[in-house]
Structure formats: structure tokens, C-alpha cells
């Protein structure tokens, strides 16, 4: 199942993080992070609560600012230069735990807003693209509703479609299923699996270990702001090296 997707990984570097450190005040959240992501790679990040997973992926599109080290996304280094930041943000899609759809706009308007204003796509064309992606996440019939009228799972799929409408080269997911009821988790995961099979570069914070096994090329385990272990999924789950990973896996898979 993972084989055909694995073929699409290229040598091209999508994200390159070297020696990155971040502090909240005097609290050292991220410590000496080094991570290189190839184009087409699908990475799952897991770890205990408060270990800095969200902070790490939010640094990649500069929702959080890092203080030391270097982050290069798509060949552009993240500095305080606003032009670079906006450029990177329009190439990197992000899905949040709480969807963050715009409640005052319809589903279709949610999806066309950024293409129209950031990419300057003509409205008609943006709407066609939006409908294409809404069909892909299997909710084209909801296009004229407002987010408040949709179920959680539907909202998250809209959020994914909204990001895809910008034709991003990298997608970041921050616990996309953890605010959902069990029966809705599957529909969102299915959408993400489909995306992965098309060769999208993905960084995904999640505790869905089934998803990690099926889709990821690499699983990264974080604890206390550091990358403690990373490995291919089979090796990671069957044969964890560090004690902290073992403990974490026993807690999460134990019940």
C-alpha cells in the first residue's frame, strides 16, 4: 500500500531546519531541532502533550518565530522579511485542530478567498478550483452553506480543501482529528491518505498510529522540545530504541 507513494520521494529538499531553537520568554520550548524533509515525504510527529510538536510545525510557516538556527522552506529562508513570509505561507497549507474556518463566509467563499486575494485568480476560475477540491473531499453539495451548519468532520475536510485551493507544495497538519468524534475521524483520515498517495509533502502531528503506519515514511518522536527518535514506521513501532519512546508507545497503544 505504501509502496507506490514511497516511489515519489525526490532528492529535492522541501524543508531544511538546522540548529533551530525557540524560547517562550525564558522557557526553552524547542531545543536544537535538525530536520530535513524531502519533497514527497510524509512525516508523522508524535510525542507527549507539551513536548513542542505544535510549536515546531507552526515555526515552519512562521506562525511562531524562532530565535536561533535556520529554517529554509522551498529554498526560501524564513527571516523577519514580510515578503518572504507571505510567499512561504502561500506555498505551505495548514490545517488546525479546531478547523478555523471563517464563520461569516460560505464554504465556497472560504475556499476562494485566498486564491482570489493572494494569487489574484479570477473569481470564476477560483470557484471552479474550489468545487474541484470540495468534490475531492466529498462535500460539493455543502458549498453554499456556512461552516456552522456542518459537522466537525465535514468542517475539517473543508479546511483541507481550503488549503488545497492554494495549490500548496507542502501541507502541515496539527492534530487534525483530535477534536472529532470517532466516526468522523475516519472520513478525515481517508482524505489525508488520498492526499498522501498523490505525493503531497506532509508534516502531520497526530496520535493516529494506524494512519502513521499506513502513510508515513518517517515517524518523529518529540519530548521536552527535542527530537528524541526518528525512524521508519515499522521499525519505530515494533522496535523503539529509547526508553521514553517505549514508555510513550506503551501508554498510547496500551489501552
Amino acid at each position: 500500500m505504501t509502496q507506490p507513494a514511497a516511489m515519489t520521494i525526490s532528492d529535492e529538499v522541501a524543508i531544511d531546519i538546522t540548529g533551530m531553537n525557540k524560547w517562550y520568554g525564558s522557557f526553552h520550548v524547542l531545543r536544537d531541532i535538525n530536520l530535513t524533509v524531502q519533497r514527497g515525504e510524509r512525516i508523522v510527529i508524535c510525542g507527549p502533550s507539551g513536548s513542542g510538536k505544535s510549536t515546531l510545525i507552526r515555526c515552519i510557516n512562521r506562525l511562531e518565530e524562532h530565535q536561533k538556527g535556520k529554517i529554509v522552506v522551498d529554498g526560501i529562508e524564513l527571516t523577519s522579511d514580510l515578503k518572504n513570509i507571505d510567499k512561504i505561507r502561500s506555498e505551505v497549507g495548514m490545517c488546525f485542530q479546531h478547523f478555523n474556518l471563517f464563520p461569516h463566509l460560505t464554504i465556497l467563499e472560504n475556499c476562494t478567498l485566498a486564491p482570489i486575494w493572494v494569487r489574484k485568480t479570477p473569481k470564476r476560475e477560483a470557484e471552479q478550483t474550489a468545487m474541484h477540491f470540495l468534490e475531492k473531499v466529498k462535500i460539493p453539495e455543502q458549498a453554499d452553506k456556512y461552516p456552522g451548519q456542518l459537522s466537525g468532520g465535514q468542517q475539517q475536510r473543508v479546511a483541507i480543501a481550503r488549503s488545497l485551493c492554494m495549490k500548496p507544495r507542502i501541507m502541515l497538519f496539527d492534530e487534525p482529528t483530535s477534536a472529532l468524534d470517532p466516526e468522523m475521524i475516519k472520513e478525515v483520515l481517508d482524505t489525508m491518505i488520498e492526499l498522501a498517495e498523490e505525493g503531497m509533502t506532509m508534516l502531520c502531528v497526530t496520535h493516529e498510529m494506524g494512519f502513521a503506519r499506513q502513510v508515513a515514511n518517517r515517524v518523529i518522536f518529540m519530548d521536552q522540545g527535542q527530537i528524541v527518535e526518528q525512524n521508519e514506521p515499522e521499525a519505530f513501532f515494533n522496535n523503539p530504541k529509547s526508553d521514553r519512546t517505549k514508555l510513550f508507545l506503551s501508554q498510547i497503544l496500551g489501552h
Binding site: 510557516n61 497549507g93 495548514m94 488546525f96 479546531h98 478555523n100 471563517f102 478567498l113
Partner: peptide, 25 residues
């Protein structure tokens, strides 16, 4: 805060995010 972040993550600049997302709400 998620509304600001969603606007930012889509690449809207400050003026656009304010005019299209934040101020209407």
C-alpha cells in the same frame, strides 16, 4: 486567535486579513 492564524497561514497580508476576515466578524 485561530481566525488570525488561519488568515496568516493562507498568506493574506495584514490589510487583507483585517478587511476580509477580522473586521467583518
Amino acid at each position: 486567535r485561530g481566525q488570525y492564524e488561519a488568515g496568516d497561514s493562507l498568506g493574506l497580508d495584514y490589510a487583507q486579513a483585517m478587511r476580509l476576515i477580522i473586521l467583518p466578524q
